[in-house]
Simulated assay, not measured.
Amino acid sequence: MSARTVIVTGCSSGIGLALAVKLAKDQLKRFKVVATMRDLGKRRRLEDAAGDALNNTLEIKELDVCSEDSICTCLNSIPERKVDILVNNAGMGLIGPVECQSIDTIKMVFDTNFFGLTRLVKEILPDMKRRQNGHIVVMSSVMGIHGLLFNDVYSASKFAVEGFCESLAIQALKFNINISLIEPGPVFTEFETKLYEDAAKMDLSSTDQETAKMFQQLYLPYSEKVFHALGQTAEDVAEHTVKVITSEKPPFRYQTNNLYIPFTTLKFADPTGNMHVDTFYKMVFQHDRIFNASLNLIKLLRWRSRNNPGGKHF
C-alpha cells in the first residue's frame, strides 16, 4: 500500500509539530507528511524534531489558512493535488472580558479558527469527493462543546467549527469521506503559555472593576491550577490523533482527556442547559474550596500513576 499524503496546518510548534513528526516517523511508513506553517522563518524547531524524516517522509511548505491564494499555491505544489488526510490544526486563542476585545481581533480569531478551516475544506473536499475517499481531521476543543468563563470568543469560534463539521459529516459519508473532531482540554504548549502571558498584561480599562477583579484574581489563578491538574502535553494529544487517523472506523468526536469527560457530559445530560451553567457557576463562585481540593487530588493521583509503572495512567 502506498503512503497516504497528510497535510497538517500550524506545524511551527505545539500539537501540529508533534503530530507531523509522529506521522512522519511512523514505523510502517504509512504517511507522506506535508507539514505547513504560515511563517517559514519558524521552521527550525520542526526541522530539528523531524531529523532523518525531513525531506524523506516529511516536507515543509508555507500555508496561511487566512489566504486563499496561499492555500491554492500549497495544494498545487502537491502531485495531482492529492491529499488523503487533512489535519486542520492552525488556530488562534483569545481570553478575557469581551468588552475589552476589539472587533478586529474577534474577526481575526474567526478568520483563523473557522474560516481557515472552511477555506481548506472548499479546496480539498471536491478532490476527495471525486476519489470517493478521504479523512478530514479537525483540531477542535472541549470548548467547542461547552462555553467557559472568559473564553467567549474562542469558544464561539470552536462552536462554529463543530456545527460546520457536524453538518458536513452527513454529506461526506455519502462519498466515503470521514470527518473527525479532536477535542482536547487544557494542553501545555507555547500557544497556551503566550495566550495567558498576554492576558495577564491586558488592558482592562473597558470593563467594570468587579469583572476585572474576577478575571485577574479568580479566572487566571484557576486556569493555572486546571492546567497543572488536567493538562496534557502536545505529544499526548498527537498520539491520540494518530489513533483516530489509523482507525478503521474513525470516530466523529474524540476527546483526548478522559478527566474532562464529566464536564462535557453535563452539556448533554440536561436539554435546558441549566445543569451545565449552574454547575460551573457554583464551582467557580460558591464551591471554590471543593473545586481546588478536587484539582489537588487529581494532580496527586496523576503524579502517583506516572511514578508507578504498573499503575493506571490518568
Score class of each variant (00 low, 15 high):
residue 240 H to W: 09
residue 47 E to W: 02
residue 233 T to V: 13
residue 23 L to C: 02
residue 209 Q to S: 13
residue 96 G to I: 03
residue 52 D to A: 14
residue 117 L to C: 05
residue 224 E to G: 08
residue 288 D to H: 15
residue 238 A to V: 05
residue 227 F to W: 15
residue 137 V to P: 04
residue 50 A to E: 08
residue 263 F to T: 12
residue 299 K to M: 10
residue 289 R to T: 14
residue 185 G to F: 01
residue 200 A to W: 15
residue 147 G to V: 04
residue 137 V to A: 01
residue 207 T to P: 02
residue 55 N to R: 06
residue 182 I to R: 01
residue 278 D to V: 11
residue 243 K to M: 00
residue 238 A to W: 03
residue 37 M to D: 01
residue 60 I to T: 04
residue 136 I to L: 11
residue 290 I to P: 06
residue 160 A to D: 04
residue 147 G to N: 05
residue 126 P to F: 04
residue 212 A to M: 08
residue 246 T to M: 11
residue 134 G to W: 07
residue 130 R to A: 10
residue 81 R to A: 09
residue 126 P to W: 00
residue 10 G to T: 08
residue 112 T to E: 02
residue 284 V to I: 11
residue 101 Q to G: 07
residue 114 F to M: 06
residue 258 N to H: 11
residue 11 C to D: 00
residue 139 M to P: 03
residue 53 A to N: 13
residue 102 S to C: 04
residue 38 R to P: 01
residue 111 D to W: 09
residue 94 L to Y: 06
residue 247 S to W: 08
residue 73 T to H: 07
residue 233 T to N: 02
residue 112 T to N: 01
residue 268 F to V: 15
residue 304 R to N: 13
residue 263 F to E: 05
residue 184 P to T: 05
residue 42 K to H: 12
residue 289 R to A: 14
residue 257 N to L: 06
residue 224 E to F: 10
residue 295 L to E: 05
residue 73 T to N: 09
residue 228 H to E: 14
residue 166 E to G: 12
residue 299 K to L: 06
residue 251 P to K: 15
residue 223 S to V: 15
residue 4 R to D: 10
residue 13 S to N: 11
residue 282 K to I: 10
residue 304 R to D: 00
residue 234 A to T: 11
residue 146 H to M: 15
residue 121 V to C: 12
residue 91 G to E: 04
residue 94 L to W: 07
residue 122 K to G: 12
residue 118 T to P: 12
residue 26 D to E: 04
residue 150 F to Q: 06
residue 63 L to Q: 01
residue 154 Y to E: 07
residue 120 L to V: 03
residue 180 S to I: 02
residue 221 P to K: 04
residue 193 T to Y: 02
residue 245 I to T: 06
residue 98 V to A: 10
residue 104 D to Q: 15
residue 245 I to R: 01
residue 273 G to N: 06
residue 147 G to I: 03
residue 60 I to V: 07
residue 92 M to D: 00
residue 56 N to I: 05
residue 244 V to N: 03
residue 86 L to S: 09
residue 46 L to N: 09
residue 301 L to K: 14
residue 73 T to V: 08
residue 294 S to Y: 13
residue 194 K to I: 12
residue 271 P to F: 00
residue 199 A to Y: 04
residue 213 K to C: 06
residue 33 V to D: 04
residue 182 I to G: 05
residue 222 Y to L: 10
residue 113 N to Y: 03
residue 193 T to F: 12
